[in-house]
Amino acid sequence: MIELANRKVLLTPVYMEGCLRLRKLCVKEKISAFDWSVQAIISWILSKSFGSKNVSIVAEEDVQTLSKPGADRLLKVVVETVNECLCEAYRFGLEGPESTLCTSEVLEAISRCNSSGGSTGRFWTLDPVDGTLGFIRGDQYAVALALIEDGEVVLGVLGCPNYPMRKEWLCYHPRYHSIISKLSPTTSESWDKGCVIYAQKGSGEAWMQPLIHVNKKLVWPNSAIPIQVSSIDDPALATFCEPVEKANSSHSFTAGLAHSVGLRNQPLRVYSMVKYAAIARGDAEIFMKFARAGYKEKIWDHAAGVVIIQEAGGVVTDARGCPLNFSKGMYLEGLDRGVIACAGANLHDKIISAVDASWNSSCL
């Protein structure tokens, strides 16, 4: 499993390189091409490492759309992007293809992203662009990959290309950096951004590998450092995260919960699973998400972040305090009201109690 984790960490920058290449496309093409390109790259590298018969991936996009008439232009972009990125694999300690992948090979790789999950066996779950609006706007987004065995998440990797190395910068759009940098020179400790955070179940450790640019080229040095959740357990000092978009979570309900447990800090509204990364790294203490009635949480939106926070010393459950269930297919079936992630058990217990006291009066 350690070897598996190492492979996972190494391949992460390869598909993050794809993020940068695809930024030049129009919005609709950008997202579509990004999704399929990442899925193809991940599938190909996993198959190269473990054999195609041993690779099964749960992902949102399937190969059918790319195979339809009229998808020629998009498919061409995907094939070109996949090959451009795989040519850079050697820079991250990985072996790329011996020759350029043809269209059928790229489609074959994507076709392995058709697993429906379940309670038995091994499969991967992948979210190639978690935080779509964040990606489009040049703000926070994440590439999330997790390994699930017999319904349990055993390995999680979060690639966060725009995650700044200092907590306070999370509150600002990355474009503000160009303005602030004119007022005060930045240092490697202040604005260097981009990291991969990962953890293996049962290890009791979570790690962060920063992405460092040298001469405008992405390099992958051996500079992983351990991370852990914050030691803050006083609600008055805690910071809580929530989704940026109101459609994804009830800001009014979480605001009421924050007030009832004594949270004084303004909420940190961040796109994507970067919220999980922020808690694991100690930049925030609480993540609360309560979706509107009828919305079903997908496993790829949580799997990687859950195991990372747990191994970093935190707690993640539903609103009843039960573990999230990743064994029922593509969705978190049986989820009670919402998801609560905390840096410690004391904060977690207070949030759970506040939910129970406030739920009946909510409109969710």
Rank of each mutant, 00 (worst) to 15 (best):
L86I: 08
A109V: 08
W124Y: 15
L263Q: 00
N346W: 06
S260E: 07
F92I: 13
K28H: 09
G131F: 00
A40F: 14
A291M: 13
N6M: 03
S181G: 03
V316G: 07
G138C: 06
E98H: 07
F326M: 06
S231G: 02
S56W: 09
L145D: 01
V355T: 10
K298A: 04
K328W: 05
T120S: 13
D336T: 07
T120N: 11
G262L: 04
L86V: 12
N265W: 00
K289S: 07
N222M: 11
H259W: 02
P210A: 06
T254H: 08
S358I: 11
S250H: 03
A345T: 15
E98V: 12
L263W: 10
S327Q: 07
F135A: 02
N346S: 12
G262S: 05
W220S: 05
T65S: 12
N265H: 03
Q64Y: 11
C342F: 04
Q228T: 15
K167R: 13
P323D: 07
T103R: 14
I286T: 04
L10N: 10
A236C: 03
L237S: 07
V157E: 10
R112F: 08
S231L: 06
L126A: 06
I308G: 02
S184V: 15
G138Y: 03
L268C: 10
G151A: 09
V77N: 03
A278F: 02
N114R: 15
D62M: 05
G334W: 06
K201Q: 14
I45C: 05
G282Q: 03
K24D: 10
A33D: 05
E152L: 09
K53D: 13
G18M: 12
N346L: 13
G121P: 02
A345K: 15
G159H: 00
S231H: 03
R7Y: 11
S115C: 13
Q140R: 01
I340G: 06
I225E: 04
I227G: 09
E168G: 01
S358G: 09
Q209T: 00
W220T: 02
E17N: 01
S43N: 07
V79C: 06
K28A: 11
A284K: 01
E105G: 08
D72F: 01
I180S: 09
Y331S: 09
N162Q: 10
I352W: 08
S111R: 14
Q209L: 11
C241S: 04
N265K: 15
G294M: 13
R7G: 12
K201I: 06
E29R: 10
G204Y: 14
P174C: 05
K289N: 13
K246Y: 01
R112W: 08
I212T: 12
K68F: 08
V9P: 04
M208A: 08
D127K: 00
E60H: 09
L155D: 06
S52Q: 12
K328T: 13
G118A: 11
S223K: 14
Y271C: 07
A59Q: 02
V38M: 04
A236F: 01
E3A: 14
L170N: 02
G334E: 01
I2K: 14
E17K: 00
